[in-house]
Design a protein around this nucleic acid. Structure first.
Lengths: 332, 332
DNA sequence: AACATGAATGAAAGCGCTTTCATTGTTTGT
DNA sequence: ACAAACAATGAAAGCGCTTTCATTCATGTT
């Protein structure tokens, strides 16, 4: 592996000059530049990025922490983030936090240990105080799906309240008035917001939120099953679930109870997971623009940390979208 | 950020000694060790891994290339690989090859550029010659889902032929004799092997493979749709698809054609994607042990490159498994 | 008591770059 | 024609570690 010395030798210049042409910043005469470039080519020179990092105190690493690496949800975001970073020669170091305080902190420390220039964090569990304290450690980071008012400019969130609203509104617009709801775990911010939005839609339509038609689920399929089982003692013509997994669980239970879907019961999910297109009936759901958020977070890092400006304007809030499929029907 | 000098100062020893206690290899007296450790704690010292890398010519980075970051399929494998590596303090640098020769090579070069100690590659497109040439570049790598005889010990593959066999056998055992097949793209090794296995099962049962009952798909949902549409001119009671996406596509088309599933047609997929549990009827499919393969590849790297031995024995071939759900029925 | 042995330690070189600062050579202004 | 200003360049220090090699010191041997 050729080093900068050999390039300098071959080109007949000092290594300072070679370094300069690599970094393209300071003025170098065209003549020297040409000599250096041809020497580089001849030697097949590739700079040692480790040495560059050490000397420049820049690692070109960006740490990315998501709840889970597996699952279509985050992996899609990762894909977007990784390719945006790679395009600019930055390396993504990726790890998972598993929605657990200790593991998230451990993950963040791991990324710190990697000497990342910046972090992109999708956290679930860690406290705001912890994150605010992180700010003092001089490694810039951005937050996906979580907003802290004091540092709002680095937070990229989707309006989950609006998503909850849209889901409810979809069935309200179809004439449903008895609407059940299976919510996500309360410790998750998005779950709380979706429920808020749900209530707002009901209120706006002059309906009252009935706690008897509300089941607190766990975001898993079995939560949906259990939820429907418990709710089935009540009467309702539409069921909103705070995510798609629970919606499929509810579908399963509903069919067990002898319901004909979607005729007897309209169901709405949330997230627009890949499988939402494969359920039967296909699932009406809310799509969060995760890819856009990931892309924006990456751009923020690029701009803020590396001074690489994209034309695009940074914005921090994203709007969810209703995806209508076959799991809801007019209430007659 | 404290450096090794400050630790040495505070402990009253030389930096060589500090380095020694960090790396735990050479003998250090208990007294010095204690002094150094308490100095480290007092300063909150964290070694600069960049400097370590430069000095030791070890980056503790492992490059991982998969076809796609998004999608449940690879992300699951990534999750396993990442956590296995992280457990030993290694950093996974992850990137995607998008099943394209140029992009895969670019991805591999990118990982080389990161100065990875080793690579774990899930490639689709790149040629064997290219990979054999890589071997000469002194960065060890392992191959997932692709076998090259000359370097078989670093290849981790699943027996796709056996998987194809199992899929066909599942419906044969249920009395089906008219069996259609939608295959994957021929340039993909796994697609070819699955078809091989399919043929073997037919042969073993005394059935002949009928090219008229074979459609070459593209591994996507629409390929399944198109496949069924074309095949529907023939008579058959069972349809095997080379992956789950095509199976759902075929289901969709079959229902469009007025078939009652699974009564009129038994369908088998491949991969056991998450959504296979959500289709209607739920999909019988073949599960490849991707997680196990990923884990094994990580262990191989750990052992081969870092001399970290796990108790587990390295093996290179993995067996697929039939997952029976509701999309197949006895042929009457 | 004189010596060989071996364990613990430190001095210093080196990993491959970036960057500062001084130096050289070249223009420009008068 | 000469000083002043400036552009291009090189020498060398430094980034924070690892590792080699020489040195010191305690121990055991005869």
């Amino acid at each position: 592996m050729a080093t900068i010395y050999q390039v300098a030798d071959l080109a007949g210049v000092s290594l300072a000059t070679v370094s300069r042409v690599m970094n393209g910043n300071v003025k170098v005469s065209d003549k020297s530049r040409a000599k250096v470039q041809s020497a580089m080519k001849e030697l097949g020179y590739q700079p040692n990025i480790i040495a560059q990092s050490l000397a420049s105190n820049r690692t070109n690493r960006v740490g990315v922490l998501v709840s889970e690496l597996s699952g279509p949800f985050f992996s899609y975001m990762l894909a977007v983030v990784e390719s945006a970073l790679r395009e600019e020669g930055k390396h993504a170091i990726i790890t998972a936090g598993h929605s657990d305080v200790a593991k998230e902190q451990e993950g963040i420390e791991f990324l710190f240990g990697c000497r990342c220039d910046a972090l992109i964090l999708h956290i679930d569990a860690v406290s705001d105080e912890y994150l605010l304290k992180l700010k003092e450690r001089k490694v810039p980071f951005s937050l996906i799906n979580h907003r802290i008012d004091d540092i709002a400019d680095c937070c990229f969130t989707v309006d989950n309240e609006q998503g909850g609203y849209l889901a409810a509104k979809a069935v309200i617009d179809m004439g449903h008035t008895k609407i059940a709801y299976i919510s996500g775990p309360e410790f998750k911010e998005d779950a709380r917001m979706r429920l808020e939005g749900h209530k707002r839609a009901l209120e706006e339509a002059g309906l009252t939120f009935n706690e008897a038609l509300h089941y607190r689920g766990n975001y898993n399929e079995d939560g949906g099953k259990a939820g429907f089982d418990e709710l089935s003692e009540q009467r309702f013509s539409a069921l909103i679930c705070a995510n798609d997994e629970m919606a499929t669980g509810a579908m399963y239970s509903a069919r067990k109870h002898g319901l004909d879907l979607p005729h007897d019961l309209s169901i709405v999910g949330y997230d627009d997971q890949v499988f939402a297109r494969y359920t039967y009936p296909t699932l009406t759901t809310i799509k969060n623009p995760i890819a856009e958020m990931g892309s924006m977070a990456a751009k923020w890092v690029l701009k803020e940390v590396y001074n690489i400006n994209t034309a695009e304007i940074i914005h921090n809030t994203f709007e969810p979208k209703l995806i209508i499929r076959n799991s809801i029907e007019e209430n007659i």
